[in-house]
């Protein structure tokens, strides 16, 4: 623990939040995530996502995925620098982001592109799609090993090393977003900046005893 460089938000506030967090069972996150995905699909089905629900649903799932990836990357810096402990939820956040990436991918392939031949053609010919898919492939082993059995099987050190694949995956995800935007748009760049910033927090020289 790098308790020395903690900036507490106010006396008692951080412990209070941490205390409250401890009382929230992690399964609630899975329930909320699954319900959210289903709710968005339902909205798409019933006209709630506007005139072009396929693109909208694809975008919403993609944005949720990248938001959760950012949230997952923020867990360690929040604990190290602010003292907030979201650690019990980190796996759920990661699994949910993986889940929304899959949902995003399925809407893209099945509802948007619609044929296997064109999915394949897009993967080969469209760099932002290739990059998005590369990000997904990096996340695949993480999704599959996000369980206690895999942690035991791999051992903590190897498991942690494997799960650092989320760093390049996050950068690829942000690049995918930046690249697909039409014109100079701010939002994708903000995600890229957030992800690079959170990674920089981990990779700065470990002079103060912190661990990446």
């Amino acid at each position: 623990m790098a308790g020395s460089d903690r900036m507490t938000a106010g006396p008692g506030l951080v412990p209070a939040v941490n205390g409250a967090l401890r009382r929230v069972p992690t399964w609630t996150l899975y329930v909320v995530g699954a319900a959210w995905a289903a709710w968005l699909f339902w909205l798409g089905l019933t006209g709630g996502l506007g005139a072009e629900p396929i693109n909208e649903l694809e975008r919403r799932y993609g944005e949720l995925a990248i938001n959760l990836i950012v949230a997952g990357l923020a867990v360690t810096p929040l604990r190290r620098h602010v003292g907030l402990n979201f650690m019990p939820f980190r796996r759920a956040i990661g699994v949910l982001s993986f889940f929304f990436v899959i949902a995003h991918l399925l809407v893209w392939a099945v509802l948007d592109v619609q044929t296997l031949a064109r999915v394949w053609a897009d993967l080969l010919e469209r760099p932002y799609i290739t990059i998005g898919m590369a990000g997904f492939l990096l996340l695949l082993p993480l999704g599959l090993t996000s369980n206690d059995w895999s942690v035991r099987r791999l051992g903590g050190a190897a498991w942690r090393r494997l799960h650092r694949l989320v760093y390049p995956a996050a950068v690829l995800g942000a690049l995918h977003y930046v690249w697909l935007a039409k014109g100079f748009q701010i939002e994708p760049l903000l995600y890229m900046a957030a992800i690079l910033g959170l990674l920089a927090l981990r990779f700065r020289p470990a002079t103060r005893g912190g661990r990446a």
Partner: peptide
């Protein structure tokens, strides 16, 4: 894709 065709 024609706008207005729904999710499918």
């Amino acid at each position: 894709r024609r706008v207005g065709g729904g999710l499918f």
